[in-house]
Amino acid sequence: MEYIDRYRGELLEVFAEAEAETGRFPDELGRLGRELIGACHPLKTGGKASVIAYLLPYWMDDITGLGSRVCRDLAVGSLFAMLHYAIVDDLMDGPEAAPADPRRLLALGQLFHAAFQARYARHAAADPERLWALYARYAAEWAAAVGGEPERRADPLDVRQLARKSAPVKLGAAAMLLAAGMDERLPAVEEALDLALAVLQLSDDWQDWAEDLAAPNGNAFLTIVRDALGPDDAEGGEPRPLTERDVKAAVFRRGALARLSRIAGEYAGRIDERAEPPMLILFARTLADGIRRGAEEAEAEVSRLIAGHGFSKLISDLSKI
């Protein structure tokens, strides 16, 4: 993908610097930290997290022209911040979801957070109070999103709600603009980032729906699934738990994935090409296209079954819900 391939050399440097710095953490924390960094290296393992977290400073350089040294520092800092929040997210999901002992992860997460702040502080001289005030706002948006997730169903039509789960990512763009003396562009860039992060969340929710069936409120695709199934999905006023068969019925019979694709495509299309980094636009469109292809494949499968007289069996199987 172009939004990764263009920066392959820099990514090797970013991850090498992050691994070297993490290797200096005390005791076993350095080893564990390097393992977590390696697990999300996009050029070696495919990564487990979205590249926007640490490539955004490079994408913003198309606007700011600050150069590779600033981009690299902020990218390494953003990688540390991403790992900090990933650890918190895992621990929120329960000890069984954590990749290591929770106490050790909490300690490591704090070291990652301190390393992130130190990297960003190198380039905050122009207006450090503004930068950290923005970070406090983004962190509060994230906290509101994850803190209210169990009680509030994710709304696929609410861009800001979707984007808040990844709000700290926006600091990479804010830091670049402040360092370049271009902070007047921040509102427009934040709006574009919210749209891109909303597409990212919809894509993640589609890919993770099976894992989220036990706690579906935080998954916007499962909100679409439940809406597609309609009022018959309720028992005694309370919606019954969703099943894998429900999701397949919503996809193959009710067009749930096609609806998700339309929403993601609309968000990606709203990012202003005249003002925003080209790679951010490409990133959002690539994710939206991935959902679209999934929807097209689902439609093609239904057509194939109809042509082969297998659709009646599919309907029969999916009706047993």
Rank of each mutant, 00 (worst) to 15 (best):
L11K: 00
E13C: 02
V14R: 03
F15V: 05
E19H: 00
E19V: 08
A20K: 03
E21S: 06
E21P: 01
E21I: 09
T22V: 07
T22R: 00
T22W: 00
G23F: 01
R24P: 00
R24S: 03
R31A: 14
E35F: 04
E35D: 05
I37M: 07
G38K: 09
G38P: 12
G38F: 12
H41G: 02
P42F: 12
L43M: 13
G46L: 11
G47Y: 12
K48I: 14
V51M: 09
V51Y: 12
I52S: 09
I52P: 01
L55T: 14
L56I: 15
L56N: 13
Y58G: 09
M60H: 03
M60L: 12
M60D: 01
G67N: 02
G67Q: 10
R69G: 04
R69W: 00
V70A: 07
V70L: 04
V70S: 05
V70K: 01
R72C: 02
R72K: 12
R72Y: 01
D73G: 10
L74D: 09
S78C: 09
S78M: 10
L79T: 06
L79D: 03
A81C: 10
M82I: 00
H84L: 00
Y85F: 15
V88R: 15
D89R: 13
D89A: 11
M92H: 14
A97L: 08
A98L: 10
P99I: 01
P99M: 08
P102R: 03
R104C: 07
L106C: 09
A107D: 12
A107E: 15
G109I: 03
Q110I: 11
Q110P: 03
L111P: 04
A114D: 13
F116V: 06
R119Y: 01
Y120H: 06
R122I: 10
A124E: 03
D127K: 00
P128H: 10
R130A: 14
L131V: 11
L131F: 07
A133C: 12
A133S: 13
A136G: 12
A136Y: 01
A139E: 14
E141R: 14
A143R: 12
A145Q: 08
G147P: 12
E149V: 10
E149H: 04
P150R: 09
